[in-house]
Nucleic acid binder design. Structure first.
Lengths: 127, 127
DNA sequence: AGTTTATTGTTATAAAATAACATTATGTAA
DNA sequence: TTACATAATGTTATTTTATAACAATAAACT
């Protein structure tokens, strides 16, 4: 269990408290009062947090969310549903889907390391 | 069957001929001699081509590939494997996986429209 | 303590995407 | 065919996202 450095902790806290994915520059503007002033500081922390599996990047949105999956300490596989109406992003906890997809990748002849899956549509509330 | 406009055709041809995903500004530099001079012209064509399902965006790479799936004329569902060594990107033709995933989304309570799936690892050659 | 390794701070810049507005082309319906 | 609407294009400027490069600190190791 890796401990976070100061910058990593500050940035993780903000992402973790947020109810929605945060963009790097939104994070930046929220931590400038704490002395984190420049983009590289944010991006470096984000990179490490992703490596540790503490956060994930929503590629289609260039935004970052805390991992909801308590067992997820390596960022091996991520799956999200994204509502095109209310923009809600939900992490799909995914033992089944994960098993299915890793199997699929192996069959396809790939030495599989991770995947990223993003569903788009309307969430329960919006449909 | 929709016909392409001049700019769309030029840009589709370049993507279609390429053996690898192309970035918007790479495309731009390749079409400037044909009179397409500015980013918006490229991005507009890309957006339309995506709508038509002629190309897909590899979100994790900000790059674009022609659709390999002849039946794919709506960009409903995309799946790619990306080799982290040689950078090869392959579209996975995906009736099974597609069925599985759309089922999965429905069960999760989502009104599903499309998904994007990106596998990372080592391809056959590189592993 | 001295050395390596990781993290941080900082400035500048690169890369990716879009806003805004003027212009031209295409389709369509009286 | 003319008038109107719609779509596509051209253009300039700007915004947004991400990284290069290098100096300074801090932490971990022997």
């Amino acid at each position: 269990m890796q401990t976070l450095t100061r910058n990593q902790q500050i940035i993780f806290d903000i992402i973790n408290k947020s109810s929605e994915p945060l963009k790097a520059y939104t994070i930046l503007s929220n931590v400038q009062k704490k002395g984190i002033k420049a983009p590289p500081q944010v991006y470096r922390a984000l990179d490490k947090l992703i490596e540790m599996g503490k956060i994930h990047k929503i590629e289609s949105k260039n935004a970052f969310v805390a991992c909801q999956n308590s067992s997820c300490n390596v960022s091996k596989a991520t799956a999200f549903s994204i509502c095109e109406s209310c923009e809600e992003v939900t992490e799909i906890s995914n033992s089944k889907i994960s098993k299915y997809l890793s199997n699929f990748a192996e069959k396809a002849g790939m030495e599989y390391k991770k995947y990223n899956l993003e569903f788009f549509g309307l969430c329960k509330k919006c449909k």
